[in-house]
Design a binder for these strands. Structure first.
Ligand SMILES: [Mg+2]
Length: 455
DNA sequence: AGCTAAGTCAACA
DNA sequence: TGTTGACTTAGCT
């Protein structure tokens, strides 16, 4: 009789048996995630219609429960099959919400949908919220204020968000919000990891991310292995399948996380070589990484409230801003690279007082034959006009106990426009502009967070 | 060809 | 604001 009374729903449930709602963005697959598990998540999680039952959701139940559930149809087989797909809670150590890695809307084209699934968007928002809980309206707000693509005025994606909150068992309603309007949404304990994603949809290892001083991308490209660059290695770096980068043991990687001038210069050389090969002529200039003079400045760069011990990185995301739109700004060099070394302290010694790039830029010496500087030295000065559009840029501070505190900027959003300011007597150009960004006003606005950044 | 994650539209409470 | 279903799409095996 159980067979007969098994509601159609219980059959359909099999298609919702994945608690995660699979957060992989379209077109992306998770590969090599270490977090996959073959354990069963109780089918109790699968779609109880009431809040009460979803509250009972806790840890995965033994598989035996599952078979009782699917008793009607194909018994053991079904539950086994489910076993394979279900994701299981993982204990992850999360930093406090405000120290989560920043989520950056760095797409050039903001009519293009960001590469995150709705579930991931919701999860990212909640993980960064005080108390790790948000109301629906707050979720809308986070998403629309983080990604230019999502407009408050459009209802389609908001419908999808609601749909997702309901459907995805990792999102649970908790207490009623004060403001009357709905409840807080939280992430079911143990499922936070599902929402720690890179843009590629890969699950992030927070341990690594939070300790990546520069969030510099080309880890593999700038290790010292590179120095013996044979020509054969040519094709396997950068945008290739990174299936092969593996060989560097984790320890090793960590060690090389901080880009060295050498490493970066090697990248520059490679780019030059390629450019030369591509263009046929060999007048491509050699570029060098910048050496920046650092001076203390606590006025423009107050330290975030000292936050003990661990060597996490505090990240502030700048408000959305536009690059200086002055057409035809002069530049001394043009160098596009995936790494974020521009304003980073390149120097190998990282100790010192609170440091920052000598405000701003005026003293960055550019040009000349001195290899210590980003000298597009041999390259003629040119002009360029920054692209329009809002961007944000992260400002990161190592939260370490020692005095190596610095603030630097990793302007990954600037990859489409790299130019250094001319230090020529081109008086019409302001020194404040670095890579098309008015650093002074940007930083000021960060320190005066009074202005609302709605959209 | 079937399966699954994910997105869209929409009824309805 | 929240739940649910029908339907679609894309990638994988
Ligand atoms: Mg839910």
């Amino acid at each position: 009789m159980n067979n007969l009374t098994t509601p159609p729903k219980s059959v359909k449930r099999t298609k919702y048996n994945d608690v995660s709602g699979r957060l992989t963005p379209p077109g992306q697959r998770i590969k090599g995630s270490k977090i996959t598990s073959t354990k069963l998540l109780s089918p109790d999680l699968s779609s109880p219609p009431t809040t009460a039952s979803s509250k009972s959701l806790q840890k995965p139940q033994p598989a035996s429960k599952a078979s009782s559930m699917s008793k009607g149809e194909s018994k053991g087989t079904v539950s086994l099959k489910r076993n394979k797909k279900l994701k299981v809670p993982q204990e992850v150590v999360l930093p406090p919400p405000e120290q989560m890695p920043p989520v950056i809307d760095d797409s050039v084209d903001f009519t293009k949908k960001p590469p995150y699934s709705y579930a991931t968007l919701i999860g990212m928002a909640i993980l960064r919220a005080p108390g790790r809980k948000l109301t629906l309206a707050q979720i809308y707000h986070w998403i629309s204020s983080t990604f230019r693509y999502y407009k408050k005025s459009e209802v389609g994606w908001q419908n999808s968000i609601r749909h997702n909150l309901s459907l995805n068992k990792a999102f649970i309603k908790t207490e009623r919000a004060k403001d009357g309007k709905g409840s807080f949404w939280q992430i079911q304990n143990g499922f936070e990891y599902m929402f720690l994603r890179t843009k590629d949809g890969k699950i992030i290892d927070l341990e690594v991310v939070l300790h990546e001083p520069y969030q510099a991308k080309p880890l593999e490209s700038i290790t010292d292995r590179d120095s013996e660059d044979s020509e054969s290695e040519e094709e396997e770096d950068e945008e290739e399948e990174e299936e092969e980068v593996d060989e560097i043991p984790d320890e090793e990687k960590r060690k090389h996380v901080t880009p060295t001038r050498q490493g970066l210069n090697r990248i520059a050389s490679r780019k030059r070589r390629r450019s030369t090969e591509a263009s046929g002529n060999n007048n491509t200039p050699q570029l060098f990484t910048p050496l920046i003079n650092w001076i203390p400045n606590t006025e423009n760069f107050p330290l975030p409230s000292a936050n003990t011990g661990s060597s996490n990185i505090i990240t502030q995301l700048s408000p959305p801003f536009q690059r200086n739109q002055t057409p035809n700004q002069s530049f001394n060099s043009s160098f596009s690279c995936n790494s974020n070394f521009d304003l980073s302290p390149i120097k190998s010694s990282v100790t010192g007082p609170l440091l920052e790039p000598k405000t701003p830029i005026a003293t960055i010496r550019v040009s000349g034959n001195n290899n210590n500087f980003l000298t597009a030295a041999k390259q003629s000065t040119g002009t360029a006009t920054p692209k329009s559009g809002l961007v944000r840029t992260p400002f990161k501070t190592p939260n370490s106990a020692n005095i190596m505190k610095k603030i630097w900027n990793s302007p990954s959003c600037l990859e489409d426009f790299y130019s250094s300011p001319s230090n020529k007597s081109n008086s019409s150009k302001s020194n404040n502009y670095y890579y098309g960004i008015d650093m002074v006003s940007l930083l000021k606005s960060m320190n005066n967070p009074d202005e609302e950044l709605e959209r």
